[in-house]
Amino acid sequence: MSADTSLLTLLTTTPLFAVGLTLTAYLIGNGVFQRLKRPSWLPAILIAALLLAGALALMGLPYATYHQGATWLTVLLGPATVALGMPLYQQLPRIVELWRPLAICLPIAATLAAFYSLAIAWLLGSSDTILASLAAKSVTAPIAIGITEQLGGTVALLMGALLITGVATIPCVSLTTRFLRIDDERLIGFALGLNGHAIGTVRAFEISPTAGAFASLGMSLTGIFTAMLLPLAWRLIGMGS
């Protein structure tokens, strides 16, 4: 065993290596994002993910080893999601004004978000495991991980689907709102959060606190709705058997 291999093995025995690598990739990604004048089609998290994947490939470090060290970072996703309740509370009067249309829109949009990806994957002949991994791709990660494990999917594949979905949502919502001439920040934020989970919510907060609050609402309600009904629907159609 070479000295470099021994050093890498020693470093990966502690979670600090994986955590430090993750944070370094994000800081560099955010710096590049700012330098490129914050393009909506290339968020910092995507740059960081590409840098991290490249670093793992160059070091020859298996993803399973990296994931084992960085697992505790995913634990922080739960408290971070709960913390989004503060902007919701601050925008509560505006949310109450729109509760009827939002209540009608949510189940339709959340159902479609799961259906179209499953339909495309099924038509392409994907396995049940892949279908289970894609079903919750529009749900925020802490909830999506639990749903995917319950359905029998792969968390690693889910995380890739979450990243792609969040990144694709931002330009799609931007183009759609321009085409339909929608300038209400509440509707734009809700669409970003409902379809783009945390990545869309970050983009919404860049637009305004109001858009961010409604994105938090859309992300939270989509997660709750999907967690309650998707496993049930999965069993009813016989996918969980």
Rank of each mutant, 00 (worst) to 15 (best):
A136E: 13
M59C: 13
L180N: 11
V75G: 00
N30V: 07
G29P: 09
G240Q: 14
Y26G: 02
N195P: 06
S174H: 12
F225G: 13
I164Q: 08
M239C: 11
D184M: 03
D184G: 09
P142W: 00
P62Q: 03
A215C: 06
L11T: 07
C172V: 15
T176W: 02
I120G: 03
R38L: 15
M159L: 15
G54C: 09
F190Q: 11
Q90T: 01
P209Q: 07
W99Q: 07
A64D: 07
L98M: 14
F115P: 08
D128M: 12
S241T: 11
R235L: 08
M59I: 08
T5P: 03
A113E: 14
L10C: 10
A121K: 09
K37H: 14
I170C: 13
P209L: 08
P231W: 02
A119S: 15
V173G: 11
I188E: 12
H67S: 15
L187I: 08
V202N: 14
V167E: 10
T74R: 01
R35M: 14
T22N: 12
E185Q: 14
L16C: 07
L61W: 06
D4T: 10
A55Q: 04
A18V: 00
P171K: 06
P101K: 05
A80S: 03
G212I: 02
A227M: 05
I108P: 01
L112F: 14
G69E: 02
V167N: 10
L102H: 04
S6M: 13
L112G: 12
L134M: 14
G20H: 04
I224H: 03
I145C: 04
I28D: 06
T13A: 13
T12F: 10
L163F: 06
I130P: 11
L92Q: 08
A44T: 02
V155C: 12
G196W: 06
L162D: 05
W99T: 08
L42D: 09
I207Y: 05
L92S: 11
E97I: 08
M159D: 09
F225I: 08
P107W: 00
I237E: 12
G29S: 09
A136C: 09
Q34H: 12
F190G: 12
L134W: 10
G218P: 13
L8D: 13
I45V: 13
T81W: 05
D183S: 14
A141N: 11
L84G: 00
G78T: 03
G54K: 06
L92Y: 07
L84P: 02
M239L: 10
L217T: 01
A132P: 10
L84F: 01
F115T: 15
I28Y: 00
Y66P: 07
L10I: 07
G152Q: 13
T210M: 04
F179L: 15
L221W: 05
Y26T: 01
A141I: 14
G20I: 01
S117N: 09
A103R: 00
T154N: 14
D184E: 00
P43S: 04
M159I: 15
L187R: 03
P107M: 02
T81I: 01
P62E: 03
M1F: 07
I207S: 13
A136R: 01
L124S: 13
I108F: 13
F214H: 05
P93L: 00
K137M: 14
T210Y: 00
